[in-house]
Write a protein that binds this DNA or RNA. Structure first.
Lengths: 218, 218, 218, 218
DNA sequence: AATGAATGAGCCTTCATTCAT
DNA sequence: GATGAATGAAGGCTCATTCAT
């Protein structure tokens, strides 16, 4: 098919752009370096993508799509499994996805979070909200009907934070080759287990507290 | 008084620099804009601070110092209070500090984390490590002697993540004036309580699990 | 041909740079003026040469190479000719080379001598030492085995000085268009003959004096 | 007397200006550095001298005046001494003056020669021409009435060149602290003797040649 | 289809000079 | 008389983008 013409050069540019954007962010990355790493001409970015901004969007779109494909959302846990198990599946999947060295989209989205270019606003929202909805649903189930939506959101953001923030720090330490510094996370699965344990205990505590307040048995 | 002369212009520059660096990061911020916001000449930064990098360091240093003064480290909890209470004090203090609208140092350090300039490396390390040591100590105490250092670190990073990451998202939402979007955190104290609850439950769960494994009673 | 592509614009820049560096020296010359004289964009220097320093080095390198090609080192005197004749050849060649209006390298090297940028240090040393060695060899031969190396160096530097310093003054007078001032040197060949006469007489006098002192016949 | 008020600060500025202008030339020297070295305020130059250019002129004027005082023009040789001896006196004096570490005027004038600012044009001409006239007179006497003015000038410029150019190189080598490089001139008096020998022999050769051509006995 | 030479806007920085004190 | 804070013009350099081939 001719629509999928997209030359190999374009792919190389996207790969190089992932690397450079992931390392330096949108503005610190230069078109010249991306082209150089891709073995392409200085004009290649504008030729293939129109301008730097369009390349940035396309880079994120591709990284995100690849990441989704590589890490099926529920970690292989069937939807009828107990909620605890499904939460474990989601946490483990998320962490593996974020820890994947191929993953550029995580770093890019964190950069976009703290230093927004405004270029990915829409695309990020539409991509991330569905993911969070899944976790919200499981947490809501675990908390039971007595607990209000505010607490659901609090629990969810806490769980998400425990998954993302440590991995961010981890990636940065790896990047800066701090051989001397002891790695925070030696065993990813062990740390994932730790988060699951932490999360389930936390959720349970929230549930207990709410029930106590409302006087109804857990 | 014999303290630094530090003209009013210098202070204005630092204030403007806090804002601009906090909004755009080191590289996206321009000296011209900082000077314009400070009502100063384009050469004022170089006159007062030597160059942009030195201004950046000085901005962080001042923001950090002010923040420390405004938010005493232990939140007024005496050191001989029970560990649970001291943890609560630390979490509450950290969150208030981070939520403080005057606080620029939080955003700057998060930017530095994900997109490092290398300019604050030393100063950040020396400033942040002592803070984390305090939390590590409390967590270590809560976990008891049976639990190894790896778990102490895991718990600490999880607690820290629950404090920082949600606040980061919160700040960004406020900044981009998403009036439509429901704020994640309406009541800071309530959310702090939530984290404390979550954290204590998580730590307890880790302790229980370790004790079970080693066969010793909790 | 497979040689450097070296666009015409690059050549124009080098030509303009020769002129401007030769007139004003490294620091007083501005990239803007060089580009303007070359009919090029303000960014052309950085595009073609990287920066001002590299352009300066390249300018000197090219000027020196052209000058060497245009003025064969021994002035066509065969190496087995009498020493007097070889010295005459060297002096004449040097003066013609220095007097050549196309020669920029002479002025640049004199500027570098008195107000060094440190940019040409190595390349000048490696370029000039071999030239001086030739003259030292002839002078050593003329002085005979009785005369020590110190006198050889003294004679050589005196001869060199007589060649260079008057030409320097001459060039400057021409540059500043002192139509009124009588030119120092009307006839280059006559002045070269004068230096040869002066030099040979001086060398002979040194030789005689040394022989007298040591008591050995000349 | 109140006219000689010229504060000590002004003297310090002139001393610092001598050093800095002598090291870096007019443009590379900065007012800030001169003031710093003089222990003066940044505005001191403009306050005491009006602007940088006026300071430059005043610096040269003072250096020249001091140099003239320190090195009486004829080296103590009485005007009725034989011409050879007077030439020796002039050469020796000139070299001692130029070699004087306190002498800044020599380097400044050489810089002005090759990279003119146009600021000292008049003052240099009026200062240097009388000096050269003295030498021209002695050379004219030595060459005898048969020799035309062109040869007088040639001899004079050759003698001057032998005095100045080697000393220039010497000063530069000393400045750049080339401890490794063997100094060209170890013994100033020996080198001055060498130049005198060289010069007298050269002048005699020129005289002989002219007389031979015109057929008249020397 | 693809290149690379060329552009111009904008950035950080330097520095002689000014001005209020 | 003397200071030092402040200025504005100008310099070198970067970089996304364009254009002729």
């Amino acid at each position: 098919m001719t629509t999928k013409k997209s030359s190999v050069a374009k792919e190389k540019l996207l790969a190089a752009a992932s690397d450079v954007f992931g390392e330096k962010g949108f503005r610190d990355a230069t078109v010249a370096e991306i082209c150089r790493r891709a073995g392409a001409n200085i004009a290649a970015v504008n030729y293939h993508f129109g301008n730097k901004e369009a390349l940035y969007r396309e880079t994120w779109r591709q990284s995100f799509a690849e990441s989704i494909l590589a890490h099926p959302q529920d970690g292989g846990i069937p939807p009828n499994a107990p909620a605890e198990q499904r939460l474990r599946g989601q946490i483990t999947t998320l962490m593996r996805r974020v820890a994947d060295p191929e993953n550029r989209e995580f770093v890019i989205s964190q950069m976009e979070l703290i230093n927004p270019t405004g270029l990915l606003e829409e695309v990020m929202k539409s991509a991330l909200i569905p993911l969070r909805e899944k976790t919200l649903a499981v947490v809501r189930e675990l908390l039971g009907p007595e607990v209000d939506e505010q607490h659901v959101m609090h629990c969810e953001i806490c769980i998400l934070s425990m998954c993302l923030h440590p991995m961010l720090i981890q990636r940065i330490r790896q990047r800066t080759k701090k051989a001397g510094a002891p790695l925070l996370i030696h065993d990813l699965d062990a740390f994932a287990d730790h988060i699951v344990l932490f999360a389930l205990a936390g959720v349970q505590a929230v549930r207990d507290q709410r029930c106590k307040k409302t006087g109804s048995p857990s």
